Amino acid sequence: MDSVGTARLLISNGGESALELTVEPWAETHQMLPKQTWVVVTHSPAADGSWSGTLREDEPFQVDYRPESITVWVNGNCFHLSDTDANVIDSADWHCPAQGAFS
C-alpha cells in the first residue's frame, strides 16, 4: 500500500508514571512506561486513500487525552502499534499491510 493510504501517529509518555493507551474501535489496551514513544499506523480502507474521520471528514485518527490514559480512535481498516525502532507491540487484523513504524 502506498503512503497516500497510510497514516502514522506518534504517541509519547512524557510523564512520571505509566499511561494507559487504548486503541479503538478494537478496545486494545497497553501500558506505556514513562519516556516511551510508540507509533500507531493505519491504512485507509478507501481505494482513493481517504479517511472516514471521527468528528470531521478525512481524519485518520482522533485522540482523547485524560490524565492517566489516552485513547486513539483509528479510522482505518486495521492498525499496528510499534516502538520507534519498528518493534511490533500489537497488530489488529491479520490482513493489515506490512508492519512496523515506517510501513
Rank of each mutant, 00 (worst) to 15 (best):
G76R: 03
S91P: 00
P97N: 05
P97S: 08
R66S: 13
I11W: 15
S91C: 10
A92G: 06
S69G: 06
V63T: 04
V63N: 03
W94D: 07
F61T: 00
D85F: 15
G53H: 08
V74W: 15
W38E: 05
G76E: 00
E16C: 02
Q62Y: 12
G49L: 00
Q31G: 12
E68N: 03
D48K: 01
D2P: 00
A86N: 10
T54N: 12
S12P: 06
L81H: 10
V39S: 13
W73N: 04
E24Y: 15
Q62R: 06
V23K: 07
G53Q: 03
D2A: 12
V74I: 00
S12V: 04
S50V: 00
V63D: 07
F102I: 01
I11L: 12
S69I: 04
G5R: 03
G100F: 15
P34E: 02
W94M: 11
L10H: 11
G100N: 08
F102S: 10
C96D: 04
I70D: 05
F61K: 03
T42G: 15
V4D: 11
D64Y: 14
D2T: 03
R56E: 12
W38F: 15
V23Y: 14
H95G: 05
G53D: 03
T6L: 14
N87H: 15
L10K: 11
C96Y: 13
P60M: 12
L9W: 13
C96W: 11
V74F: 09
